[in-house]
Simulated assay, not measured.
Amino acid sequence: MVVTGGSSGVGLAAAKQFAARGDEVVLVGRDPGRLAAAVEQVRAAGGSDPAHFRADFENLEEVRSLAGHLLDGYPRIDVLANNAGGMVGEFRRTPDGFEATVQGNHLAPFLLTSLLRDRLRGARVVNTASRAHQQGSPDPAALAGDPAAYSSWRAYGAGKAANILFTAEAARRWPDVFSVSFHPGVVRTNFGAGAVTRFFYKYAPFLVTPEKAGELLVWLATAPEAELVNGGYYVGHKVTAPAPHARDADLAARLWDASAAAVGR
């Protein structure tokens, strides 16, 4: 079970639950300190050291290096949980030339999944999306972004819509890889950009715990395929129609082709 964004929040909660089931867990995180702490927690949950790799998804060369380590170390990957991602407060272009939100939330996991594609035959990919996809739509022709028109919430929404579109298109192009995306709920984490947003995601009374969201990720990763829909977007345990732009097959195909060209696949 490879879990990106596995050093905190939903990813860490799911990794601990995988470990408690006896699954072999591979953690991927960006911050070395948080990653080391996560390793200790997963060890406590499962009784053995999880493999772990550091990678910053705002650097595609680090994503390629991560894929190389996974290809070298694992002849088969049963589950790839593309959970890494987040919101960027101010416009930032990565060293690879793309707007940071679309790269971190979409292009990097797209690249990682593509590089691991042969190891994922007969396996499962679970992409963490969000209901925030309703707030933005990705533009396949403008992955570099426009600083003059930047909105952190719109960019985040576009990134999450890209997760849903990627999932559906993967189901069409890679029928031997079972792909699903999901909304984890509004989760109590250190999420967001800016003090007000971070305060909300820590203290609002109706928030979902990371453990509850992790349970949903684990269910999507382990439930029999007959109980799920390949390419489906889940809210809770129900496959759900996303916003119209996030179920546009033409947009999904154009985004796939633009993403492949952008990352050299």
Rank of each mutant, 00 (worst) to 15 (best):
P50L: 00
A51R: 07
S65P: 02
G86H: 10
L35Y: 06
S65K: 09
A38N: 02
L71P: 05
V39M: 05
I77H: 08
A45V: 02
D49H: 14
Y74V: 06
A55I: 15
E61K: 03
E62N: 13
A36S: 06
V63C: 00
P32V: 00
R34T: 12
A37T: 06
D78K: 01
L66N: 15
G68E: 01
A67H: 04
H52D: 07
V39I: 03
P50R: 00
H52K: 04
E58K: 07
P50M: 00
R64W: 15
L60D: 01
A81R: 04
S48C: 02
M87E: 15
D72S: 09
N83E: 00
R54C: 07
F53D: 01
E40V: 12
G85P: 01
E62C: 13
F53A: 07
R76A: 06
F53C: 07
I77S: 11
V88D: 13
D56S: 02
R64H: 12
R43Y: 15
S48N: 11
A55T: 03
R64S: 15
A67P: 03
A67Q: 05
I77Q: 07
A67T: 04
E40F: 06
L70C: 00
L60I: 02
F53I: 06
R54H: 14
N83S: 06
R54V: 09
A36V: 04
P75D: 06
R34W: 06
L66F: 15
E62V: 14
L71A: 10
A67D: 02
A38G: 02
L66H: 12
E58L: 10
G86C: 07
V42Q: 10
M87C: 13
D56I: 00
L71E: 11
V88T: 13
S65L: 11
A45D: 03
A51F: 08
D56E: 10
V39A: 09
R43M: 15
G47Q: 13
A55S: 12
V63Q: 02
L70H: 08
R34K: 12
V79M: 09
G46R: 05
A45N: 01
G46S: 01
P75H: 09
L80W: 03
V88Q: 14
L35S: 01
G73V: 10
V79L: 08
A37N: 03
R76F: 10
A38F: 08
Q41M: 10
E62P: 14
Y74A: 08
N82R: 02
M87K: 14
S48L: 06
E40L: 10
R64A: 13
V79P: 03
G86E: 12
A37S: 02
V88M: 12
E58W: 11
L70T: 00
L80T: 01
